[in-house]
Structure formats: structure tokens, C-alpha cells
Computed example of a mutant assay.
Amino acid sequence: MPKKVVPEAERRRRKPAKAGGVVLSERLYIETALRMLQEHGRDGLTVRRLGAALGADPSSLYRYFRGTDDLLLAVGDELAGRALRGWTPTGDWRQDLRELGLRIHAAYLAHPQAAILTASRVSGRSHEIAADEAVLGVLRTAGLPDAEAARVYHAFVDQALAFAALDAAALALPHTARAADEAVWQATYARLPAATHPHIAATAPRLVARMNTSAYPTALEMLLDSAAATLARVRAEGGVVPGGGEGGGEGGGAASCSGCSG
């Protein structure tokens, strides 16, 4: 079950602690954790190293977080917040959902080490909740019944985070390892003979052109196509009321996306 959301104001001490003239805060710890993950990976994110980086006693962390795992959940929530920052719905459900997916994917890839550790987690924090509300709002306002909105939401969120984790893992590899992996498509697959591997040989130039880039935009369009087909079927069956929701079904009112920008 998601943990209870605790507002940052309730997590702070009444008098914020200072370290080397710097006022400690939950946000400062999150930003420092992102930097340390980027530079050193998970092994660099320890209570002692965080304290050293901030010029603070290591135990200061526990004024804001239960431990490094709780800090990681906050880091994941920060990435969700960055994805939402500046986003506003346009009223075109497909454009809005596409934009949200690409923003989520990009926000995580900007911090590959953090993405690997947080993409599979559920924090129940404010930015994560705002992102979930935004996605569901787009789907329900488009006219999907609640059951279908939940189904598409599940696939949409898991797809975005799964590709974020996959692509982040590749970006987090040492440069030499990543370059070697990328070279395999040209050095091996492109040279397989049609006599033994006819299907690979036939598509090899296209594989070389595509396989070292993320498949997420393509997969996202496939998901949007599926959602559009579902929406068309629902409309054809007369299951939509103006503004979204279900006629006579559960949750007949539509959710609004206004204010979902986090």
C-alpha cells in the first residue's frame, strides 16, 4: 500500500538545522541525492556521504527522512514533479497523453542512476499523486468509462516507467560498454547472411537505424492507438455522456485536469 503523504512542512523541524552556513531542508537533501547518484551511483548514496557532501552531521538526514530508502522515494517523486512542471492540458486527449508520457520518460532519463532505483517504486507523495490525477483526468475527460480509464492508465504509467528504467540502464553503463553494445547491430546483425537468417538480413538496415534509439515513442503511439480504438468502441456503444464518464454507470462525472500541473 502507498505510504501516507506527509507534507514537507510537517516533516521539517521548527528551526531548520544549519550545516556550514547552509540551511538544511528536505529539498536540499533531494537535490544533493540526485547529484550524488549521478556522480557515484547507488553506492555513493549513504548517510555518511550525504552528511559529508552537505557539511552536516550524518544524523541530520533523519530530521527529514526515515532513511536513505525514504529519501529515494522522495527523489522519485521529485522526478515526477519535474515531468509535470509547466504542463497544462490542451483538451486534445491524445496530444495531452503523449506529452505527459514523453515528459515522464525524459525526466527520468535526465537522471539515469536515479531512474534505475526509483522507476519501479510507489511513493504516494504529492507529485506522484498529481501525475496520476493528470493522466486519469485526461482519460476520463476524453470519455473513457472508469474501468477502461483505469486499464489504460495502468498500461500507460507502467509503459512510461518501464522504458525509463530500460533506457536509463543503458545510459548508466560505462561509455565503453555502451559503445560496444551499440556496435553489435552493425558489426554482427548487419552481416548475418540471408541464407541462414533471412528475416534479420531483410530488415538489418532498418534494425541498425533503429535499435540504438529508444522504442518508447513508437510504443507510446501503439498504446494511444489502442486507447483511441477503445474510445471509439465506447462511443459507438453509446456509453459516453458529454464531457466524459459513463452514462448511467459508475463515476458518471468527468474528472477535470485543471490544476494537475503539480
Rank of each mutant, 00 (worst) to 15 (best):
P2S: 13
R11M: 12
R13P: 13
P16H: 03
A19G: 04
V23H: 03
S25I: 10
S25V: 11
E26M: 12
L34F: 10
L37K: 04
R42P: 11
G44Y: 06
R48S: 07
A52N: 05
A53Y: 02
Y62H: 15
F65C: 09
L71C: 12
L71P: 12
L71Q: 04
L73T: 13
A74N: 13
D77K: 07
D77Q: 11
R82E: 15
T88G: 10
P89F: 03
R94Y: 05
R98W: 07
A106I: 09
I116G: 11
L117R: 10
T118K: 06
T118N: 08
R121P: 14
G124V: 15
G124C: 15
A130V: 06
A134M: 07
V135A: 12
G137N: 05
L144E: 00
D146P: 06
A160M: 01
L166I: 15
A168Y: 00
A169R: 03
L171A: 03
A172Q: 01
A177W: 01
A180S: 11
E182H: 04
W185N: 06
Q186F: 05
Q186V: 08
T188V: 12
A190Y: 01
L192I: 02
A194T: 07
A194L: 02
T196L: 12
T203W: 10
P205C: 01
M211T: 14
N212C: 05
A219V: 14
M222Y: 08
L223H: 00
D225L: 10
A229M: 10
A229K: 04
R235A: 06
R235I: 02
G238H: 01
G245S: 02
G245T: 05
G247M: 02
G251C: 10
S261Q: 14
